[in-house]
Design a protein around this nucleic acid. Structure first.
Length: 253
DNA sequence: TGAAAAAACCCGCT
DNA sequence: AGCGGGTTTTTTCA
């Protein structure tokens, strides 16, 4: 099964971990569409922008589709933009007796408060997206290797909202990157993707299979401190076999 | 909003 | 390779 993952990953030009994540995401949300349309997108270059069935909650794109230009952020929210109170309610106020009037007033206030909350909510999400893009711009533009390990708490601090707010905002939302791929928003918070990518690159470049200890040493030189136990773990995540098995794999291939 | 419970994470050791 | 513990991070709860 793992091997399949790794093949899928290669064909899709994304990491195995991402494949796994997507798989998890699918099962957790019982909504196979976002990721599938994603895969389909990759395989069939017939990109139909409007055909994003698993409509992401946030879309990032390059201005004028030019990677040199700034990144644009779009936030999709339910009943987002121009939700207003139906004017006829105000009119109706005048036609009813005093008691009903009071009740209606209360209700109207509740309604407008509700609308305000919604707006603030989208606003928060938008600000969050902005900060995220700012921080992870390099990742967005140049790939996994440049993902900075950040936490939800840090973002919360930056926006001066509570971590639980971010937590909820992040989970159960998806984002589409300029490369047209849809991810769970939590990709931005993957703390080990960067190092895992690094490990993968090291292994790819190796002449002789390096054991985990040697990989640790190499990473050390790049200023990344991590235990060899952890290297092994990441290796697994990426579907990379232990050093002593890698030689055979090349043969059997 | 804060705090407690749960989950994830890293890592030493066997 | 796998267990377990000490932290850190996330999610839930009231």
């Amino acid at each position: 099964l793992k091997k399949q993952f790794s093949e899928i990953a290669q064909q899709c030009e994304i990491t195995i971990n991402q494949v796994e994540k997507i798989a998890n995401f699918i099962t957790e949300n019982l909504n196979p569409y976002p990721a599938r349309s994603n895969w389909g997108d990759v395989r069939n270059p017939q990109e139909n922008e409007m055909l994003q069935l698993g409509a992401p909650d946030i879309i990032l794109s390059f201005f004028e589709n030019n990677p040199q230009k700034p990144i644009m952020i779009e936030v999709f929210q339910p009943a987002n933009s121009n939700l207003i109170l139906n004017a006829s309610y105000h009119a109706a106020l005048k036609t009813v007796d005093k008691e009903t009037k009071m009740k209606m007033r209360e209700d109207l206030e509740k309604a407008s408060l509700f609308i305000k909350c919604l707006q603030q909510r989208t606003n928060t999400i938008l600000r969050m997206a902005q900060v995220l893009v700012e921080i992870q711009e390099k990742y967005i533009r140049e790939g996994d290797r440049y993902l900075k390990p950040i936490t939800r708490a840090e973002i919360a601090k930056k926006l001066s909202v509570h971590e639980s707010t971010i937590s909820r905002a992040v989970s159960s939302k998806t984002i589409q990157l300029p490369n047209r791929k849809v991810y769970p928003l939590s990709v931005f918070f993957d703390r080990s993707l960067q190092i895992r990518t690094e490990i993968k690159e090291i292994v790819e470049k190796e002449k002789e299979p390096l054991n985990d200890q040697e990989i640790v040493t190499k990473l050390e030189k790049k200023g990344m401190h991590i235990a060899r136990r952890t290297v092994a773990k990441y290796r697994d995540m990426e579907g990379i076999l232990p050093a002593y098995q890698r030689k055979e794999k090349v043969k059997t291939k």
